[in-house]
Amino acid sequence: KIIHYIPSIDRTAGGTSTYMQVLAKGLGELAEVHIITHASENPLAMENCTVHYVPEYNPFKGAWRKRVTEMMEVVKPDIVHVNCCWMPACAAVQHIAQKHGYKVVLTPHGMLEPWIIKRHYWTRKVPALLLYQKAAVRKADCIQSTAESEGDNLLKLGYNSNIKVVKLGIDADGIEMKKSWKKTRQILFLSRVHVKKGINFLIEAAAVLRSELQGYKILVAGEGDADYVAEMKRMIEDNGLQDIVQLVGGVYGDEKWRLFQTSDFFVLPTHSENFGLVIAESLASGTPVITTVGTPWHDLNDTNSGAWIEIGTQPLVETLRRFLALSDGELEAMGRNGRKLIEEKYSAHVMAKEMMEVYETLIPNLPNGY
């Protein structure tokens, strides 16, 4: 029996929600899975599990702790798996679980990566580390990282050495691959509109390549903080790129897959990702990917399914110029390589099986046939 706590399974939460959706579906075939989370407007559908909603965390209300404790007493889990960092509720759930003798796995989801820790370091990170976050990482029975690079960075923190790498996966069986690679002159960015994602690099690169991008559309799909969205809109206008770069807001469901399948290639010029599920989704759709060394996707270069480049405007300019010159046939070869990579290395079934193996290292006296 596994309890997962995750702050949100709303579609606007991005990769962490999708991770929970994919993992629950596969893990639910191997164990009894319960998810504790908070209510939201547009939660993703969760299969093969039971979802329990609790009120937003309030450290001054004992009723919240009592509610979570009662859930644990009813389920009697073998493992409590906490997802995400920095939010006090995550540390609170871990504290409750360990106080009652349950083993805890913590998945930071890239939230302990160097770039993230440095952001708002003195005003937000240091107070959180002193109050609860460092203790939570130290006391976790196991830390799950989603890539070797993230695991290395977690070791360098020095808080906890029991780190297991379980790479994320996606349900590729349910994703249709594009049937045509004939150029549409459409380039896609799809993720949260956030300073971490490097959208400014994409806009700056488009300004440099203005003449070569005539007739192209770069779609920036995603939701974000209103002030930052406005800042990116101003940047597009200041560079006179309104005809090329378009902010289209959040896209979900069929519309999301349509954009993947109708784009020549996908670009995520991010500063930092522990995995980047949108990269996997694009590859599964047969659409080549350009992303940065801020992600663990060196496989793109190794398998000729995209490009894994340095962070910044100039590397992106050079790579975009190269991709704009690719033929339909070359894009198809890359796209098919990407789909093959996902099927062989990043399937949801592999992720669920490897996660169970991590749990089993923490559970003593497993019954036969578990």
Rank of each mutant, 00 (worst) to 15 (best):
V350L: 15
G101Q: 08
F323Y: 15
K103Y: 06
N304A: 12
D254A: 14
I35S: 05
W115F: 11
E70D: 15
K99V: 01
V68E: 06
I363D: 14
V245A: 08
N239W: 02
M72L: 15
A284Y: 08
A45H: 05
H298M: 11
H95I: 04
L316E: 01
G110D: 09
K197R: 05
A280N: 07
S149I: 12
F275G: 01
K164Q: 13
A230I: 05
R258T: 15
Q314F: 00
C142F: 00
E360T: 03
A39E: 15
V350P: 00
S149N: 11
P127F: 12
A24L: 04
K256P: 05
F60L: 14
A206F: 08
I290L: 12
A140I: 09
C49L: 10
V126P: 12
A307V: 02
E310P: 07
V350I: 15
R124T: 14
E231L: 05
A226C: 07
V54N: 03
V68Q: 08
G151V: 04
L23S: 01
E255S: 12
P43R: 04
M20Q: 08
M334H: 09
P43V: 03
S161H: 11
E204M: 00
A31N: 11
G215N: 12
G215R: 10
A333C: 07
D225P: 02
L168M: 14
W64T: 14
V68T: 13
V208K: 10
E47N: 12
S17L: 03
T291E: 01
K25V: 00
Q261P: 00
P88I: 09
I79W: 06
T295C: 11
I143N: 00
N337W: 05
I218K: 12
I96F: 05
D171Y: 03
I244G: 05
C49Q: 02
E56D: 14
V105E: 05
E29Q: 14
S272M: 14
A226L: 13
N200G: 00
W115K: 13
G14Q: 09
N83L: 05
E310H: 14
N337E: 08
Y228K: 03
S191N: 13
S327R: 11
V193G: 03
N368H: 10
P55C: 07
L326D: 01
K179Y: 06
E332D: 12
S191P: 02
A92V: 09
E70V: 06
K233A: 14
A97C: 13
A89M: 13
S263D: 10
L23H: 01
Q214M: 15
T146H: 00
T12L: 12
G222H: 04
V248N: 07
T184V: 08
K139T: 13
I311L: 06
R11H: 01
M351S: 02
I309D: 02
I175K: 11
V82L: 09
L247R: 05
G222W: 01
E273I: 07
H34K: 06
K196P: 03
M111S: 08
T313W: 00
T123P: 00
P88K: 08
T18V: 10
L154Q: 09
Q98I: 06
I290T: 04
T287D: 02
I3R: 07
N368D: 13
